[in-house]
Design a binder for these strands. Structure first.
Length: 778
DNA sequence: CGATTTCGTTTTTTT
DNA sequence: AACGAAATCG
C-alpha cells in the first residue's frame, strides 16, 4: 500500500487516507481524481474495512469496471469483486430485483428504455383521445421524467396546484392523468423506466424503514463520483443511505456539470457542506493531463461563468503548442481538414489512431467527419448515437427474450405479437388493449383466457393468438433448463425472425443479419463470462439487465486502434493525446436551444470546458462558415467560446488556401467546385476581438443581437472576394448542379458575399459567392 | 390485413 | 437527408 500512496502528491494523499466522516473532493479536470478514488477504496480495505460494505457510485459502467480492475491490482481479485460498484441505475436495479416485491414488482421486472416509454405514452395519449400534436410523446416523456427526478409522484402531482396549473397553462391539462395512466401501465407490465430505478429506490427506502436500515448497515462507506451530475432523486438516495454512518465521500467538479437537461442539480455539489456536519473539503487543483496552453485556454473560458466554486487549476506540465483554431468553408471541408490533419500528425509524430478524438455537440455532426475519415482510410469508431441495443432488429430479438421472462411486458408483446407477420393486425391489438384495460389485466392474461373472455375477435384470429401463446410458452419451458445463449439462438431460428431478416438481400439487410449474429455472440460471451464467476447465475434476466443499462462506451473492445468520434457528453472522463472540437459555431455550440437563460449558456460553456480539457497535448477548435443542417445549407458564425479564450493560448491556423490535398478525394458538398479556382488573395485570419465581454451581455441580448456582433467581426476581414461586384440582382445564372436560376438578392460583402438564387428546379438557395461557381448567362 | 407510398418531423446532450 | 407514422390501395 505504501508504494501506491507514495505515488500521490500531498493534495491527493490527504483525502485518500481520510477514512471516516463526510468529505468532498473538488477535483479539477485531469487532477487525478480517479486515482484518488481507487487508492482511497484500496486504502479503506487495507485499514480493515470489509469490501462488502463499500458502495461506489460512478457515472458509467465502464468507469466502474476500470476502477475495479485497478483496485484488484492493489488488493487482489477476490477482495475487489465484493465491492458494490456501478452506476446509480445498475446498482439500484440490482437492489430492486431483491427488494422490489415490497413495492409489488416482480424480481424479473423489465427495464423500459426511452423508446419503450415513449411508445407506451403514445398509446396512452391515443387511447385517451388526446390531440397528439399538443401532447407530443417526447415532451410528455421528458416532463414525466423531470417529475420523477424531482420525486414528484402522481399523488404529489395532484396535491400540487402549482404544477397542475403550470401544465394547464401550457395547454396540457391532461398531463396528470397521462402521468397516472403511464405509471399504472408500467406497474401492471412489471416494468420500470430509467427514472423509476431511482424513484422506486427512494420509495423503497422511505416506506420501508427496515429495508433502509438493512442497506444503511450494509453500505458503511459510500463514494460518489461525478457528484456534480447527480439529480435530486440520486441525491436523496445517497443522503438516506449515508445517514447512519456519515461516511460519505463525494468527488466532482462543478465546472464539469453538464447534465442539467436530465435533472442534474449543480446545487448538490455546491451545497454539500451544508448537508452534512463537519465536512472535510479537499481540492485537487494540479492538472496532470494537459499542457499549459490547454489548461490556460480552458481556464480563461470557464472564467466567464458566474456560478462556480473557487478553484484554480494549474499545471506543471510543459507549455506545449497553442490551441489551434481553424476555419473551413463548409462542414465537408471541416471534415477533410480534420482527417488530413490526423493523417499528417500521425505520420510526423508516429502516433496511433487512438491518440485522436473528434468531439462534437450533436450526433448528427459525425457524418461529415465519418465521410472524410473513410476517404482517407483512417479507422474510426463512432460512439453513442443509436446504440447497438436500440437497433430495430436487435430490439426485436430482445423483445422475445423480454417477453419470455416477463409476459406482462406490454411493449415487448406489442412489438412482436405480429412480427414476423402472423396475421394479427392493429385492430386485434387495439381490441386486446381495450379488453385488458377494461378488466384491469395484462394483455398476456387476456391472451391466456382468450376462449372465455368477452372480446370482439373472430375465431380465425383467436387461433392465431393461441398459437402465439403456445410459442412463447414453449420458450418459457426451454428457459428453465437452457442457457441464455441456447435459448436466444433457438428463438431467433424458430420464431421466423431469422427468415424475416434473411428475406431482403439489400446491404442493410445483410448488416441487420450481422447485427443479430453479433447479439448472439454477445449472449454467448456473457454466458461464458458468468460461468467463470462461481456465484453468478448467468441467466437471461441478468443479460437483459446488462443490456438495458449498457451504454455504447461499455461495449468498448478496447484493443482497436481507432480514432474516437463522440459527443462531448460522452467524452466526459476520457482523455486523448490530440482532440478536435468541431462545429464551434453559434447556434450549434452553444446550441440554439440553450441560449435563453444564463444557466443554460453556462452549462454550454462548461461543456466546452469539458471538451477542451480532454486534450493532453494538442487541442484543435474548428468551425465552418456554412454547414448542412436540416438538409439545408445554413450560414454560421464562429462560436463565442472561441472569442472567450485568452489570445495568448490560441493560434489561428486557417491557411491562405483551403487545404485540398487531393482534389479527387474531395467530392465537394456543392459538387461544383473546382478546387484550383478557389483563391484568396491573402491569408484570411479571423480576427477575434478580445474585449473581455461580461457574460451578462450575452444573456441580456437576444440571439439576433449576438449575431450582429459576430457579423461585424467578420466584416473586419479584408475584402478579397474575386466575384464581388460581378453579379447583380436579376441576373440569370447557371450552376453546375442546381441548373439555371435567377438572382433574387445579394447580401454581405467581402469574402462573405452571399446570393439568394431561385433555381428553376432546385428552388431557392443561398450560396456563398466566393465558393459557388456561377456562370452569368443573362 | 398487409404492403407501399407519401407526408411530416427532426437535431441537443443520455442513464 | 433520413426516418417513422399515417394514408392509401390491393
Amino acid at each position: 500500500m505504501e508504494k501506491y500512496l507514495s505515488q500521490l502528491n500531498d493534495a491527493q494523499l490527504e483525502p485518500t487516507i481520510q477514512v471516516d466522516g463526510p468529505m468532498i473532493i473538488i477535483a479539477g479536470a485531469g487532477s487525478g481524481k480517479t486515482r484518488v478514488l481507487t487508492y482511497r477504496i484500496a486504502y479503506l480495505m487495507h485499514k480493515g474495512v470489509d469490501s462488502f460494505s463499500i458502495l461506489a457510485l460512478t457515472f458509467t459502467n465502464k468507469a466502474a469496471r476500470e476502477m475495479k480492475e485497478r483496485i484488484a491490482q492493489i488488493v487482489g481479485e477476490s477482495e475487489a469483486k465484493n465491492l458494490w460498484m456501478g452506476t446509480f441505475h445498475s446498482v439500484f436495479a440490482r437492489i430492486l430485483r431483491v427488494e422490489g416485491h415490497h413495492l409489488g414488482f416482480p424480481s424479473n421486472f423489465t427495464i423500459y428504455d426511452t423508446q419503450d416509454s415513449q411508445k407506451l405514452l403514445g398509446s396512452i395519449i391515443k387511447e385517451m383521445n388526446l390531440d397528439k400534436d399538443l401532447y407530443k410523446t417526447k415532451q410528455v416523456y421528458s416532463r414525466i421524467s423531470s417529475y420523477k427526478n424531482s420525486l414528484i409522484t402522481v399523488k404529489a402531482y395532484f396535491n400540487n396546484p402549482e404544477l397542475m396549473e403550470a401544465d394547464a397553462m401550457a395547454r396540457r391539462p391532461q398531463m396528470g392523468n397521462i402521468y397516472k395512466a403511464y405509471v399504472d401501465r408500467c406497474f401492471k407490465a412489471g416494468a420500470m423506466d430509467f427514472d423509476d430505478l431511482l424513484l422506486r429506490t427512494n420509495e423503497l427506502l422511505t416506506r420501508f424503514p427496515t429495508v433502509l436500515a438493512k442497506y444503511q448497515d450494509k453500505f458503511r462507506y459510500i463514494l460518489v463520483d461525478e457528484y456534480q451530475d447527480t439529480n435530486h432523486s440520486q441525491y436523496l438516495i445517497v443522503r438516506a443511505l449515508a445517514d447512519r454512518f456519515q461516511n460519505i465521500c463525494v468527488v466532482g467538479d462543478d465546472a464539469q456539470s453538464i447534465y442539467a437537461f436530465r435533472g442534474a442539480n449543480i446545487n448538490n455539489i455546491l451545497n454539500f457542506q451544508r448537508d452534512y456536519d463537519n465536512v472535510k473539503l479537499y481540492r485537487l487543483e494540479q492538472n496532470y493531463r494537459s499542457t499549459k496552453n490547454i489548461v490556460g485556454a480552458a481556464n480563461s473560458v470557464i472564467d466567464h461563468n458566474q456560478t462556480k466554486l473557487d478553484k484554480v487549476v494549474w499545471t506543471a506540465n510543459e507549455e506545449g503548442p497553442k490551441v489551434k483554431v481553424h476555419r473551413s468553408l463548409t462542414d465537408g471541408d471541416e471534415g477533410r481538414y480534420v482527417a488530413s490533419t490526423i493523417w499528417e500528425t500521425k505520420m510526423n509524430q508516429q502516433l496511433n489512431n487512438s491518440d485522436f478524438a473528434i468531439l462534437y455537440r450533436t450526433n448528427a455532426q459525425s457524418r461529415a467527419m465519418e465521410d472524410a475519415l473513410r476517404k482517407r482510410n483512417i479507422p474510426y469508431r463512432i460512439y453513442g448515437g443509436l446504440s447497438f441495443y436500440q437497433r430495430k432488429e436487435i430490439k426485436d430479438v430482445l423483445s422475445y427474450l423480454r417477453l419470455i421472462l416477463n409476459p406482462s411486458d406490454e411493449e415487448a408483446l406489442k412489438r412482436i405479437i405480429n412480427y414476423p407477420g402472423r396475421g394479427i393486425g392493429q385492430t386485434t391489438i387495439d381490441r386486446l388493449v381495450v379488453a385488458a384495460n377494461g378488466l384491469g389485466k395484462t394483455i398476456w392474461e387476456i391472451l391466456k383466457e382468450i376462449d372465455t373472455v368477452q372480446v370482439n375477435i373472430n375465431n380465425g384470429t383467436k387461433n392465431k393468438l393461441r398459437d402465439f401463446v403456445t410459442l412463447i410458452e414453449s420458450y418459457q419451458v426451454m428457459n428453465q433448463t437452457a442457457t441464455a445463449f441456447e435459448l436466444a439462438e433457438h428463438v431467433v431460428k424458430s420464431s421466423g425472425l431469422m427468415r424475416e431478416f434473411n428475406k431482403d438481400g439489400t446491404p442493410e439487410g445483410v448488416t441487420r443479419l450481422e447485427n443479430v449474429e453479433e447479439l448472439l455472440n454477445g449472449v454467448k460471451d456473457f454466458v461464458e463470462g458468468q460461468q467463470e464467476l462461481a456465484d453468478a447465475k448467468g441467466d437471461l434476466a441478468e443479460f437483459l439487465e446488462d443490456v438495458a443499462l449498457a451504454t455504447d462506451l461499455d461495449n468498448e473492445k478496447g484493443d482497436d486502434d481507432v480514432v474516437a468520434l463522440m459527443t462531448i457528453h460522452l467524452a466526459k472522463g476520457l482523455e486523448f493525446n490530440n482532440v478536435f472540437v468541431v462545429g464551434l459555431e453559434e447556434d450549434l455550440f452553444p446550441s440554439a436551444m440553450s441560449m435563453n437563460t444564463r444557466s443554460e449558456l453556462e452549462e454550454e460553456r462548461r461543456l466546452f470546458y469539458v471538451a477542451l480539457t480532454r486534450a493532453e497535448k494538442q487541442a484543435y477548435l474548428t468551425y465552418a462558415l456554412s454547414r448542412y443542417r436540416w438538409g439545408k445549407l445554413v450560414d454560421s458564425d464562429p462560436s463565442r467560446f472561441i472569442e472567450e479564450i485568452d489570445d495568448q493560448f490560441i493560434e489561428n491556423i486557417t491557411p491562405p488556401e483551403e487545404r485540398r490535398i487531393n482534389p479527387m478525394l474531395s467530392a465537394d458538398i456543392f459538387g461544383d467546385v473546382e478546387p484550383n479556382k478557389i483563391r484568396f488573395k491573402k491569408p484570411v485570419q479571423p480576427k477575434f476581438k478580445k474585449k473581455d465581454k461580461a457574460p451578462e451581455k450575452f444573456v441580456a441580448s437576444t440571439p439576433k443581437n449576438l449575431k450582429k456582433v459576430d457579423a461585424l467581426g467578420k466584416n473586419d476581414v479584408p475584402n478579397t472576394n474575386l466575384f464581388d461586384g460581378n453579379l447583380a440582382v436579376g441576373n440569370i445564372v447557371s450552376h453546375m448542379r442546381f441548373g439555371k436560376g435567377e438572382v433574387l438578392k445579394i447580401e454581405g460583402k467581402g469574402t462573405d458575399t452571399k446570393a439568394e438564387i431561385k433555381f428553376e428546379v432546385a428552388g431557392v438557395k443561398k450560396l456563398l459567392l466566393r465558393f459557388a461557381k456561377l456562370d452569368v448567362i443573362g
